[in-house]
């Protein structure tokens, strides 16, 4: 996936987490740092659907796949490749 894809994802994560730290520290533990909780997770799902037309089902969502910004990017890349 392109850098612009990564940049777009980080932009969404930064907006939802309300900090730019996620752009520079890709291994930032989002839940442990209390930047993410269930409402933020769902908010990001909605933003991802708007941005990438990628629907993520909360009922099938594994939190382990979104623990850090790097993991979110990897998870979304995987989902988009499967979709293609």
């Amino acid at each position: 996936m392109s850098t612009s894809f990564q940049e777009k994802v980080l932009q969404l994560v930064a907006s939802v987490a309300e900090t730019d730290e996620v752009r520079t520290n890709l291994d930032l533990p989002l839940y442990d740092s209390q930047l993410f909780d269930s409402i933020k997770t769902v908010e990001l799902m909605v933003r991802i659907e708007e941005e990438f037309s990628l629907k993520i089902s909360p009922a099938e969502f594994e939190r382990e796949n979104w623990l850090t910004p790097r993991k979110i990017i990897a998870d979304l890349e995987r989902r988009l490749q499967v979709k293609v």
């Binding site: 909780d37 269930s38 997770t41 769902v42 909360p58 009922a59 099938e60 969502f61 939190r63």
Partner: peptide, 8 residues
């Protein structure tokens, strides 16, 4: 609440 999969 913290685990949507379990919540649903």
């Amino acid at each position: 609440v913290a685990n949507p999969k379990m919540l649903y």
